[in-house]
Design a protein around this nucleic acid. Structure first.
Lengths: 239, 239
DNA sequence: AAGTGGTCTAGACCACATC
DNA sequence: ATGTGGTCTAGACCACTTG
């Protein structure tokens, strides 16, 4: 497992040495760790090297440093753990399954006040509305109901979304400054239920996503998933 | 907004200079950025300083470096965005609402084969089973159904969970090596529905969580939420 | 006064890509 | 041969905290 013939960099040796002490529980939370100068002596390296090791471990959340005082094992940051939300086509392909899409709608629309406020635009702005079913092995797994501001993302309405998902097109076009996600469990409406081939008494996992580019809302999407066929999962490991 | 009197470190000046070019779209994805030596001349600093700036931007996902070739603006990593799952009590308190808990069960149990496999233990191991309702302003918002291996986390069965949540106790006791989350939308069973005061035709947001300590499964939990009163949200901003 | 972290320099050697 | 990134050294100055 750890037979590097290639010679491990010195700063990494030091990082792993410290991580080992923390993982084993030998150095508990809030305990002091050796100073840069102590590590300089112990490992016979320069201070820049020990500084890099300790600085990177601090950036990664393992240590806390206080100038003039010392370096300490960080409190456990267990209150928040990341869950990743992937692009649906990539996710399906990563399971080595066949991805396909059915475009139900892709047209310009006028917006009402509620949507205008949600997207932070005037009511006279024209948006493109797309409605797409994403399928895994031919089975519906996501209904994507999306609004796009073409003032921010040009050419959206002219794409062939059976070839490339809207999300893939958007991130190529727009720098993508900020993304907001909300995950909910709901009961599907009649049309959502039939479009996704859902059974009676089946819940729906809904992801609402809003993306910003250059300070403006580029797009909003509602992603509906059959509860029996879709779930979000995430594995969080420090390092 | 940007009136530092304290003198910004040189490596940060360089980082911000590059980030500005990327954010503005001036330096598009896959474009080459100046080499370390070019930045050394431009900013009149040593190479260690430009190296740190470029290395940190690389660690943060903005740049890609290839030894012997150059440094480039990274492809947008938009395929995965983090969604954070918080400890329920902290979450409620952060909304300045009153948190309370009702402990329905907290007792030792024998496990069946399915659970033993899921927790990677022998069937003769005794677990502690706790069932707790977490409330916001007195209204049920989470039903926590948890199994804990006391060989890994000692003293679990003796805690008062109206004062401190199981999750808070667990992370204090165990180093918390790895966390797995699965988020689902389901229809609640009759008892879940009544314990959470849910209406008919209301979906249930379920989070299944498994935590590891020192290579062993310390605890598994099913967290049930009323779909009308709970949602997960996350805002992702680079930087 | 002594120790700590935070930053920075002006060199250096290496492996690797490109021309 | 030249340029690139990856690493490392042996100093240095500073602001800060502690005794």
């Amino acid at each position: 497992m750890k037979t590097e013939l290639k010679a491990e960099p010195l700063y990494l040796k030091i990082k792993n040495h410290i991580l080992g002490r923390i993982d084993s529980g030998e150095w508990m939370t809030t305990m002091r760790v050796p100073s840069e100068n102590q590590l300089v002596k112990e490992f016979s390296v320069s201070r820049m090297t020990t500084n890099r090791a300790l600085r990177e471990l601090t950036d990664e959340g393992y240590l806390v440093r206080v100038a003039g005082v010392g370096t300490f094992v960080a409190e456990l940051k267990a209150q928040s753990n990341p869950l990743e939300i992937h692009n649906i086509a990539d996710e399906i392909r990563s399971r080595h399954h066949v991805y396909s899409a059915e475009v139900l709608k892709c047209e310009a629309i006028k917006v009402n006040d509620k949507i205008a406020a949600y997207m932070n635009i005037d009511t006279d702005v024209t948006l493109v509305h797309s409605l797409i079913i994403h399928k895994e092995q031919g089975i519906p797994i996501q209904l994507e109901d999306r609004l796009v501001n073409e003032d921010v993302v040009s050419g959206y309405g002219d794409q062939d979304f059976t070839k490339k998902t809207p999300y893939e097109y958007l991130i190529k076009q727009a720098p993508l400054q900020k993304v907001e996600h909300v995950v909910k469990a709901i009961m599907p409406t009649g049309s959502t239920k039939s479009l996704l081939d859902m059974s009676d008494q089946e819940a729906c996992l809904l992801i609402e996503r809003r993306t910003w580019t250059k300070g403006r809302v580029a797009s909003t999407a509602k992603l509906y998933h059959p509860g029996s066929r879709y779930e979000l999962s995430g594995l969080f490991k420090p390092e």
